[in-house]
Design a protein around this nucleic acid. Structure first.
Length: 289
DNA sequence: CTGGGCTCCTGTCAGC
DNA sequence: TGCTGACAGGAGCCCA
């Protein structure tokens, strides 16, 4: 039986995090920076150089957050660098913003201390990252974002475009979804759930999915992500502190993490298989094509 | 260009 | 009850 690891930050959790942090940190002035244990990549700048920057509007791209750091107009002396921080929560990361978070704990690896509070990255497994760059489309951030597919809610992402992009792909549709180079945001949980909702066998070759089914799949990816964002958003009202987000985003799943348990639609035991070293959950009866 | 496999890390859990 | 080892997973990266 597969175990479910507590929270896996996928697009919905990243978006909910953005919404909870953005309005409170916008306009804040950086006073100092704490860097803990190494994360996935080095920060890429001397932390002292961020002092005196003003935080801009936090935006999300895929599962990344971009935190603009601009020169504060009335600050003297002016910061030595402006640009921003590209943040990824990895497998186990969470971002909190609070007035007095206390001393960093063993899993707190980055603090941005500002005049409005402290933005803190907590990440036990350290798959996450905080990387400085001169702009979102320059330097290391640009390189990291370059291969990303379209945003799931981008209106320019049509079923036709997705279908075309899938043509010739021989990997499974599940792997193609996870790859994120066509549409971003569907991690392992949501890929499994979306495929279940539209009755597509996760093992089916990506290029073999018919156009109507691609349209249905895109709709379900959007629906499951939107639902998760909404659920996370509603739970935000209960936030008490910076890390109150724990466990709030666990959508009640139809198949994910339910190996051996009866399919909620037909009662057949949910199957678990490995695809590219990753667990896939599906109903062998409901997902036949 | 595509696809497959490896890698980072540590909390959790099965099994002895 | 305590210890050990397998496992989970996002996504960059390297190689065939």
């Amino acid at each position: 039986m597969a175990r479910i690891i507590g929270r896996m930050p996928e697009l919905p959790e990243v978006e909910v995090t953005r919404r909870s942090v953005a309005s409170r940190i916008a306009g804040a002035e950086v006073e100092s920076v704490f860097v803990g244990k190494p994360l996935r990549w080095p920060l890429g700048i001397d932390a002292d150089e961020l002092r005196g920057c003003r935080v801009g509007e936090v935006v999300r791209r895929g599962k990344y957050l971009w935190l603009p750091l601009l020169p504060a107009d009335r600050q003297a002396p002016a910061p030595r660098s402006s640009g921003g921080l590209l943040i990824h929560l990895g497998m186990s990361g969470s971002l909190g913003f609070s007035w007095q978070p206390g001393a960093p704990g063993p899993h707190d690896h980055f603090d941005l201390l500002t005049d409005r509070g402290v933005l803190r990255l907590t990440d036990p497994r350290r798959f996450g990252a905080v990387v400085w760059g001169p702009a979102m489309d320059q330097g290391v951030p640009a390189r990291l974002l370059a291969g990303l597919g379209r945003e799931p809610f981008d209106e320019a992402l049509t079923p036709e475009a997705v279908h075309t992009a899938l043509q010739g792909r021989r990997v499974s549709i599940k792997q193609a979804l996870l790859a994120g180079d066509i549409v971003v945001g569907a991690g392992n949980i949501y890929a499994c759930e979306a495929l279940f909702r539209c009755g597509i066998d996760p093992r089916l070759a990506a290029g073999k999915v018919s156009r109507p089914r691609v349209a249905r799949l895109l709709a379900e990816v959007r629906a499951v992500l939107a639902q998760a964002i909404e659920q996370g958003g509603s739970s935000l009202r209960d936030f008490k502190d910076a890390h109150g987000a724990q466990g709030h985003f666990q959508l009640s799943t139809q198949v994910y993490g339910r190996e051996g348990q009866p399919c909620r639609v037909c009662g057949t035991p949910v199957r678990r298989i490995q695809q590219a070293q990753r667990s896939t959950f599906f109903c062998p009866i409901c997902q036949k094509r």
